[in-house]
């Protein structure tokens, strides 16, 4: 095994540890409190388990008129 492979292997181990360790932490407020964030819920319909198109369709509910 070459010296280069050992060095990159060590770098990989440290990087993997850093990756899994910091993934658990919340991002800084500089990242999370922005006005121009991507609105993922617009693209990924995780709110009510219906696909993007279905959520935009009109409801089948009967419309009762309140007087």
């Amino acid at each position: 095994m070459s010296y280069l492979t050992i060095v990159t292997g060590l770098l990989g181990l440290i990087s993997a540890f850093v990756f899994f360790y910091f993934l658990k932490f919340k991002a800084s407020t500089k990242q999370t409190q922005r006005k121009d964030r991507i609105r993922w819920s617009k693209y990924i319909p995780y709110k009510n388990e219906t696909p993007v198109g279905d959520s935009e369709k009109e409801s089948d509910d009967a419309k009762f008129k309140d007087n």
Binding site: L4, T5, T8, G9, L11, G12, L13, S15, A16, V18, F19, F22
Partner: peptide, 12 residues
């Protein structure tokens, strides 16, 4: 080993 290490380095 080099490719796996570089992948984690870029990801981290």
């Amino acid at each position: 080993i080099q490719a796996v290490s570089l992948t984690f380095f870029v990801a981290a």
